[in-house]
Nucleic acid binder design. Sequence first.
DNA 1: GTGAAGGGCCAC
DNA 2: AAACGTGGCCCTTCAC
Length: 591
Amino acid sequence: MEVYFQLIEDAEKLREACADLSGEKYLGFDTETSELDPFDGILRLVQLSNGRNTIVVDLLKFHRFGNLSACRELEPLRKLLAAERPVKIAHNAKFDAKWVGHHLGVDVGGTFDTMIASQLIAAGDQDRRHSLADVASFFLGTEVDKSEQISDWTAETLSDSQIEYAAKDAAIMVPLREKLAERLQSDGLEGAAKIEFDCVTPVARMELNGFFIDQQCWREQLSIVKKEQESIAFELQEMLSAGVAQASLFGSAQINLDSQSQVADALRNLGVPIPETTRGWQMQPLVKDYPVVGKLLEYRGVAKSLTSFGENILEFVDERTGRIHADFRQIGAPTGRFSCSKPNLQQIPHGTEYRKCFRAEDGNTLVIADYSQIELRILAEFSRDERFIEAFRSGADFHASAAAQVFGVKPSEVTPEQRTFAKRLNFGVVYGIGAQRLALITGFSEREAENVLRKYFATYRGLDEWLRDAGSRAVETRSARTASGRMARFRFDEEQKAQVSSTRRNGKNMPIQGTSADILKRALAILHKSISGTSAMLVNIVHDEIVVECAEAEAESTAQKLKASMIAAAEEFVKHVPVDVDVNISNDWRH
DNA sequence: GTGAAGGGCCAC
DNA sequence: AAACGTGGCCCTTCAC
């Protein structure tokens, strides 16, 4: 592919070029940087292309005007990037948005992300890759040369080959978008794509913002948890070795508590009838007869928290910002949920000793908001089950209301046991729970569990119907969709019963979990606009929860904006069931 | 030593 | 073999 490109090294040419391009609907957009982390390296090139003409802006030439983010000569470029139109087409736009966000001080406006588009079209097919080379080859049949990607982008003078490579990457975005847009349209994925594209910039901002962690507090809390772990380990060791005579003979036959096989052997020696696996949910029923099992589960919980979230989490604290800048994957799961890594801020234990260390910096406060029972409300919306919806409309404790309906008692007469039971049932239903599993988590016999399930679905006929339909639809169409139209494809062998059942459960769960993800993503886009220009900044998201940090003086107004954004987002999809958001203003992440 | 697989637990 | 969904990260074990 031959590309016409123009290297831009001065303010006058930049102004002219930006004016020329500003009337376009779409512009291919790419950057070249010296490192992967925007806090580490320099932003060298910004490329924009309408497919015929490509400009390559050499930002090194603008450094003489001082700090890039304050550089007036770059204003035309900033305006073009910030505008909703032209839409900027980029592959993994989060990357470029972070760099221009940090170095030019601008939030990218309208975006079309070719990587996300490809992920949406693949609909969860794990075999498909989504690098630019893969996507270009799949949708355009052209090869992309990436050999210059890792070249030296800090050299005073760049080679012709480097500049041409940079230009090509921006130029190819234009035809690539056309192909992807066609496919998104024919697959009914435009709504989902819009949601995804609109939260790229908020997510980029969130990663740049990072989440403050009080390192001193963390170390203090860690030593407390460590002492606790040591005493639990000692007790467990004693209990396990009680069945091993040699232990006392040699005095040092220590069992490695982290070794699956050693612990299983020791349990067998004690006469514990251990199941096929010793996973928590399988072992839970044994706890009441065998205290050693309870101690083991306790040990594993503490050990998990300590190893995953101990000292090593401090290694993720950026020295320059004192904050943790985790990596969020926008389409982390086929359902559309986010995933997070390095570290995973979505699985910080609930224990106060961990959460209290995640806090606002001095002078700031956190505003924490989460949806109340969003997945169950989505299920209520999908099924239109009047009684189920009624339990939400009453505004009372949902699980208690459900317990009253299922067990046929007055709301005031619901026992704590009935409420707990209804709660487990409500959550389980979203995952397509069966009698066997329900029996396991409640301690009921399988027969009893079956009866309660029958009673539950007799109470909520609409729910039963929707879930059955969703299951069969998934098997028939080998796919499922969320409210925004996001799709997941299922691959299974219809001869394999287990695979068919699994597809049924997926067909029930994916639309619910995925719609919850749609809603959260919409909320991010609305929130981003509504807090723009204030002190508020997004610092974390956890599936149905959004954490914002802001100046203490703006706590109330931020809380209001956050709640309004989340409710507005949910109401776009949930129209027949009330939506509720809990908001807390707190110095730290305990709630 | 390194890497993958198996088993496990954290979050929602 | 059956299986309540989605992830990430840890440890041990085992092959190379």
